[in-house]
Amino acid sequence: MEMNFESLKKEILSQLPIKNTDSSIPGFYAMDDATALGKNRVDAASALVFKNILFYLGLIFRYPTEQIYSEIETRLDTFTDFFVDYGGAAPQLPPIEELQSEYIRLFVNNQGFVPAMPYASCYQSEGLLMSDQFYRLRQIMVKSGFMVNETVKELEDHIAILLEFCAGLLNQLASGQASSGKSSGACVAALMEVSYLYIEPMMDAFCDRIHAYAYDDFYKIAGKTLKSLMQDADTIYDQLLGFRIHSINELQG
């Protein structure tokens, strides 16, 4: 499969809502045998591809401003096969005004309730924002060298940020940045934790609610794609990192 996302990467990196902070922050998770996961073991090329996939999905779950909309539109063809593979169809982008109101209706504000809350916290404990696990996520981000850009007034566990964070971690792994500045084990651990303790637990309810409440197919397909991608995450990670986990329980030890 011929896919090169380098140009996309460059463009998109400039718009990241999360920014790379001081990379000299030591890794949070000291790894005794960090070398076991040295950069040679990471399938860097695939990791970059997967990174771009996650990044693009992150874009899709952001509010479609004109800039984001045009980014989604421009790159949609590139990802068509991916959507067909995972979501069963190629999404058709509706006009921007439709997409914006659909986004707000599903994810931001609706009368009385938000059908598909995009925050991981809402799928934990009381369905409220900033659950007990939220602070932990913030810690992982900071320790991995990321924080939410000051100009972005959004919570760290928004699905778009989570996806982008994973993309950022994959980028660190692929570029070898993680193994030089800090433990790549920490990087992988962060990736696993975010994937399996924050993204994966919200997938069923989040994506199913999109499916139930969306008027337009675009988010339905995006949701379905995201859900089946996450179902496939352990085998993907196995391939990228030479490592797989079988359940959240395993991750929790």
């Binding site: 045998d33 391939q239 030479g242 030890g253």
Partner: peptide, 25 residues
């Protein structure tokens, strides 16, 4: 589904991660 990732070998046994993952708790 994973065809686009490009096949990669060099699997490292998942067990290697046991100790580190405990740190996530």
């Amino acid at each position: 589904r994973r065809k686009f990732l490009g096949l990669s070998t060099g699997a490292v046994a998942g067990a290697l991660f046991g100790p580190h993952l405990n740190l996530l708790m």
